[in-house]
């Protein structure tokens, strides 16, 4: 049992280290070579277009579920007035960024790992290299940047739809009108809440982009190798997102509870 744990940890840290080195190469390429804005825009539109319907669909239902669950608790304490605020805060802070990143992991992460893995095992990446083009610059950088930017774009779309869905459900099922719903939003949600949601989404988007590109780019061993790359991408993305969620949430708690009052006091 101990051996198994040690082996798993070794593999985890080896993989994590390799992904960090891969990201360092991407970042170096971004800053040291001329970017292809057209390729990046094409990838952003492709990623966003492919995911927007899933994000919208999931957003409506998650908004509906949250509003019903919050209502069940709040009604016990006569706190229905806070429904809109609590629901919006939860969606913007945690549920939205997490949901978008999990959807991106399943849809775009798996697609990217499979696409790059197939290019690797069919020697397309070697061919690009042999024709004098840097495959990191040509293939990876546009996808990597596009997934990160798309994750923020999709978050904004998802949040608007989710909050709209919550309003609609609370109006139809709970008889709370939209104005009543919106009245408490300002009490629970401010600019820092939105900033933390966007920051988290960008971090999770970076995880989806980095892990899927790495697993696809380093795939080997034919169709089986591509399958393995896609599976590993899905597993590692979800694992890293959960770890990152813990870290970013604590970081924002620290910023809000300790650092901001300290700065205000000093000011």
């Amino acid at each position: 049992m101990r051996e198994l744990i040690v082996k798993s940890m070794n593999r985890f840290f080896h993989e994590f280290g390799s992904i960090c080195l891969f990201v360092a190469t991407i970042v170096k390429t971004v800053f040291c070579t001329r970017g292809n804005a057209q390729a990046i825009l094409a990838q952003i539109s492709s990623v966003s277009y492919r995911s927007v319907s899933t994000v919208a669909f999931a957003g409506i239902f998650v908004g509906a579920i949250l509003v019903l669950q919050f209502h069940r608790i709040l009604v016990q304490y006569d706190g229905e007035i806070f429904l809109g605020g609590l629901n919006t805060s939860a969606v913007v802070r945690e549920v939205g960024p997490l949901l978008i990143s999990f959807l991106l992991a399943g849809k775009i992460g798996a697609f990217t790992a499979a696409e790059l893995g197939t290019m690797r095992v069919t020697e397309q990446i070697d061919a690009i290299q042999c024709l004098g083009t840097n495959p990191i610059q040509y293939l990876i950088v546009p996808r990597w940047i596009a997934i990160i930017i798309s994750s923020v774009i999709l978050l904004v779309i998802g949040l608007v739809i989710s909050i709209g869905g919550s309003m609609l459900v609370s109006n139809i099922l709970l008889d709370i009108n939209p104005l009543q719903f919106a009245s408490s939003i300002g009490q629970f949600t401010d600019l820092s809440t939105v900033a933390s949601g966007i920051f988290k989404s960008a971090v999770y988007g970076t995880i989806v982009a980095s892990v899927s590109c790495y697993e696809g780019y380093t795939a080997s061993g034919g169709a089986r190798g591509v399958g393995k790359a896609v599976t590993q991408a899905a597993v590692y993305i979800n694992l890293y997102i959960i770890i990152a969620n813990t870290l970013t949430s604590n970081m924002f708690e620290f910023l809000q509870d300790v650092l901001v009052p300290f700065i205000k006091g000093a000011w």
Binding site: M119, E123, Q124, D126, A127, G132
Partner: peptide, 23 residues
Amino acid sequence: SDEALTAVRRQCGMVFQHPALLD
């Protein structure tokens, strides 16, 4: 290095076992 290799690769043409066309 990879950067320096591009100049050498410019002189070499390689036909792969698979067609390796960008699909």
